[in-house]
Nucleic acid binder design. Sequence first.
DNA 1: ATTGACAAGTGTATAAAAAACACTTATAAT
DNA 2: ATTATAAGTGTTTTTTATACACTTGTCAAT
Lengths: 224, 224
Amino acid sequence: MQVNKSYYKKQGIHAITAIFTVERGVPKVLLIKRKNEPFMGEWCLTGGAIRNDEDLLDGAKREIFEKSGIKDINIYEFKTFGKVNRSPVMRMVAVGYIGVIDCNRVNILKETTKTSNADWFRIDKIPSLAYDHEEILASAIDFLKQKIVESNILSSLFPNNFTMPELQKVYEAILGKEFDRRNFRKKILSLNIVEDTNLTMKFEGKKPAKLYKFKDNIENKSVF
Amino acid sequence: MQVNKSYYKKQGIHAITAIFTVERGVPKVLLIKRKNEPFMGEWCLTGGAIRNDEDLLDGAKREIFEKSGIKDINIYEFKTFGKVNRSPVMRMVAVGYIGVIDCNRVNILKETTKTSNADWFRIDKIPSLAYDHEEILASAIDFLKQKIVESNILSSLFPNNFTMPELQKVYEAILGKEFDRRNFRKKILSLNIVEDTNLTMKFEGKKPAKLYKFKDNIENKSVF
DNA sequence: ATTGACAAGTGTATAAAAAACACTTATAAT
DNA sequence: ATTATAAGTGTTTTTTATACACTTGTCAAT
C-alpha cells in the first residue's frame, strides 16, 4: 500500500483533565473559559497540547497548573479520544484524565482565578463546551461512578479529617442514590482504607460525629 | 510562559494492539518482525502510526490488517503510553489496545503469513521487543487478567460452540490458577452470557460434553 | 459382554458477604 | 425538662461464594 507521507504530518496530542470536587454535597467540575481561537470565549476542560520534551502525564499536569493554578494533583487516565475532526485546527488525539481535589484547595483556586476565567460547574448543569469536551466529560463522569467504590480516588477530597455522614453524602451525590447508614459505615471500614482519629466534630444541635482520615499508605493500584 | 512553537512539532500517534489467542490451552500473543528501521529485525506488537484521515480506532484496525492480515477483530483500549523517549525517531504517544481471536482464524493467519514475519508466542516466553512494547505487552496481559472475569472479551475465542471444560481451561491458562469444575460452570451460567445448544461433542473414550455458545446480543459494556 | 480408565456431569452443605431493618444517644434550642 | 435533629450501634435475613463426592457415557482391552 502506497502511503503519502503527508498523512502523518501535523499531528498532536491533547492531555485533557476533568477535575472534580464536591462542595457542600454537590459534585462539580472545573471549567476554563478559552482565551484563544479556536473556540475563544467558550468553556472547556483543563488541558492542552503536550510538548515534545515532557512525558504525557507531566504535560497533563503542566496544563492543569497553567490553566488553573492547581499543583500536586493526582490524575488517572481513563480513555483516549481519537476521532478525525475532534479539533478544527489540526489532527489532535486527546488522552482523558480524571482528577479530584478537596474543598479547601477549591477556595484557594477561587482566589487565584478570581479575575480569571475558571469556574466550578455542577456536573448536572454543564454549559456547552469547546471541542469534544462534552463527550470527554460525560465519559469521565461515567468512569468516576464506576470506579468510586473500588478505588481510593476520593481520598483527595478529604486530605484531613472527615465524618462518615460527610463521606456518605459525597458517595450519594456522585452515584445519585442513597445508602443505608449502617451498611455504608461497615463497608468503608471493611475496606481498610480509613482510620479512626479519636476526635469528634460537633454540628449544632446534633450528636457529635467521629472523625476519620484516609490512611497515608493507600496505594493507587486500586484505581486501575 | 513563553513557549517555543517547535515544542509541538513532529508528534505522532501509535496505535498498538496486543492480539491474543489460546492454542490447545496455551495463551499466545501475535508478534511481528519489523522490516524497517528503527528496530529492523526485532519483534514487536501489531500496530503503527495513525494517519490524519482516519479515526484512531480505525487506524488501529488498519495497522492490524496490514501487518497480520486479520480483519473484523474487536479491540479494546486499555492504556496510553506517553514517555518522551519511547520512540527514537520522533515524539510518539502510543495508545494500547487488546484483541482476542479464535483458533480457526489463527490457522488462516498462519497460511497468510507463512512466508512473512508474523508468529504467535507463548505469553510466558516473550523475546525482547522493539520500542517499549515489552512494557505495553506486560500491561496488556495485566489488563486481560483483571477484565477476563467481568467481561465477554473471551467470546471472540469461541465464535461457535465450546464445552465448559474448554472454556475453563482457557480461564485457568490465562489466570494461572485452577477452578472447581462445578463452581466454574455455575458461575458462567449465572452470568447469563452463554446458552445451551443441546448439542454434544465426543472426545475419544470420554463422556460426551455439552456444547454451549456465547449469546449473540452480549453488549460490550461489560468490558469497560 | 464385562471391565477399567478417563474425563464429564450433577447437588448439597457450609461459609462469607450484602442487604434489610429499629432503637439509643449527644447536642442545642425552646 | 422537653423537643428536634442527626449520629451512633447490632442482629437477622438473604444472597453469593466456596468446598466437597459420587454417578455417567464412551472407548479400549480383555
